[in-house]
Nucleic acid binder design. Structure first.
Lengths: 214, 214, 214, 214
DNA sequence: AATGAATGAGTGTTCATTCAT
DNA sequence: AATGAATGAACACTCATTCAT
């Protein structure tokens, strides 16, 4: 028996990988330097190609950025939406899993830098802000809102306003992410141990949401 | 007795006011657009002078930014250091006053935007980061540390590690500021009422610091 | 008695002259190379300034081109409109004068190259085409149409359709201009003597327009 | 008797057709956008091949353009030269046929756009201008000159200077072509009916050339 | 023969900085 | 002190051309 073989010629395999290589390079560069300060030539160099090659795959800087967001953050949101749609167990468990997934797959990775970037530069690039708000903020929020609504409907959660509660859920995670990511290395801030924070936060919140059982 | 009078002719007073006008314009522009995206021409226009005039007072963009920080944040820290040095009463009172002063005079004003800016863009301008760390973060932190040490020495506070405790004091305030300032308008986050937050935070913390009185 | 003196400092006189110098350089360059092939750096060099200086006076390439057209062709049309509005004599005389002015001040000068350019590249730059059509073609045409209408109303001209007749008037002049201007030097075409052509053309046309006198 | 058959397999015929397909695509693109603005990628796409394939058949953009001219205009001139060389009848008939052929096979087809293009952009591409002048202008002119000379020698035409007369013959046709082709759609010029124009032009000219018959 | 990925020189545009007046 | 004209380095984006497959 053989290991599965890629029968394509080498350059074709290379071609298929290119967009991913470019997106990875772009992510790093955007996170390191911010949107405006990222030079496409540096992204290209980082991916080991020339400036022109970038334009074979992405129409311009803005589309490159959007592709980075889509390929990483939006994709993860999509998975989470799947998880939520097919999940059958208690809402508290689902909510906890979603929060932890968000933390582990986005906030705790370099992707967290994208959120920082949007906070910092969003004002200067309204179209990007719009895109990010539509594809990430709105979709992510409404996912949490739906889970809360489900829990309330099933009598698992107390009858809070699910929209407001969504914000209450989101806020500490973003805070923690800013804390973990953004603070300047020089800043000498204390390291909050993120995993513990998340554990405590989730446990506390779920307990607070729990409906009274007579 | 007379109120102190400015005996200078008007144009000279004007001249003396120039740097202040420029610094005010620069602050607004930096806060609105970030450091990199701020165009000196816009700062000049906002102050009602020409671009060249800016360079009569500030050697370059970086020095302008530093001057904004010095003239506002560093100055406030200086005052606070004075307050602390001459204060004679209980350490808890001093600590509460310092925290509240920090909140009210920096975090709750446009100056809070400078902190956001440093978090967001500091990495791209290492010299600015260094400056900000030395002049603001380090000095501010050490002020709190000194007050904590004083309180412990005087038996008012429990014998915590004053350096770590400093971070614990600072973190929530910065969090609140980020919350108040930075989050994208689109983000739809709930408004935390800052004054209440600060009151509760200060009360709780001081109570937690209080040494046991036998 | 003294010659009128310019009391401004030299650099200010320079500044006032700059736009004209740039427009002149741009006209030459556009006529020589066409719109797309004209490099702004070459325009700048030709005017003896740097590329950046161009942008102090004109927002971009397109605006530079429009300014060239306005400053030359549109201005001349404006004069002609004035002439026509204030003219009191026979319509035939006015019409002849307008045609000749058009020939002498536009077609026979480098400005004719602009028309050639629009014919050649207009398709590729729809916004420029629109502008040129509105500001030059439409205004110029309607001027001739008005004069024809005036002549007909006053019983000087036969009752032709003035709009169609306008085209008949315009066509030969544009033809002559293309002939004079555009033909490649190498092309070895015969030199039509333009002045004679215009004289004969105007004389013939006016005679053809003349109303029958009983 | 059989019609000549192409015995090659289909893919080979395809291969043979390639250059023609490319030339056709190039002609359309050049006429639509002009020489400089034509992107080889668009030509390739139009021909349904890849950009690289273009370079298998034509060394570069310039050679592609020359090939378009050769394959169309020069070829037609060649035919006309043949016609003229073998023609035995009256010179007036030959001359009329040549003029009409020129009109119908070049000026009235998209090929007319090539002439427009050379007029408009020739200056920017001296090598192309040289080529066009040698292969098209000179050869075409000298063909007419030879026919005129023949007619004069045979006593059919009046003894005009054949070189000058050649230009007189050429000018109106080029004019008509410019009129038909190049003028901006927006320009609202009246449509000259080309066939009538040519008929009248040829009839008039031949009559004018006719030698007096005693 | 055919592909299409890759290149890099070239151009329009921006903006911190300088300097003659 | 103040001006604002001038500069030029920097960057996003395009496209003719090359070449490994």
């Amino acid at each position: 028996m053989q290991a599965p073989q890629d029968t394509k010629p080498r350059w074709e395999r290379r071609k298929d990988a290119r967009p991913q290589e470019l997106l990875a390079a772009a992510l790093e560069q955007f996170v390191e330097r911010g949107y405006a300060a990222t030079r496409l030539e540096d992204v290209a160099k980082r991916a080991g190609v020339s400036k022109g090659t970038l334009y074979l795959y992405f129409a311009n800087k803005e589309e490159l950025f959007k592709a980075v967001v889509r390929d990483n953050i939006v994709a993860t949101i999509g998975e989470a939406e799947q998880d939520a749609a097919t999940f059958d167990g208690p809402s508290a468990e689902l909510l906890g899993a979603l929060l932890m997934k968000w933390w582990q797959e986005i906030c705790a990775t370099p992707l967290g830098g994208i959120t920082k970037l949007m906070l910092a530069e969003g004002n200067n690039f309204p179209e990007l802000a719009q895109f990010y708000n539509d594809e990430v903020v709105a979709r992510g929020s409404s996912l949490f809102t739906r889970v809360l609504t489900r829990g309330i409907a099933r009598g698992e959660f107390r009858p809070v306003d699910p929209v407001v509660m969504t914000q209450v859920l989101i806020a500490p995670v973003i805070m923690l992410m800013m804390w973990t990511h953004a603070f300047m290395p020089t800043c000498g801030m204390p390291q909050i141990p993120p995993q513990e924070f998340m554990d405590v936060f989730i446990a506390t919140t779920l307990r607070g949401l729990q409906a009274d059982t007579p």
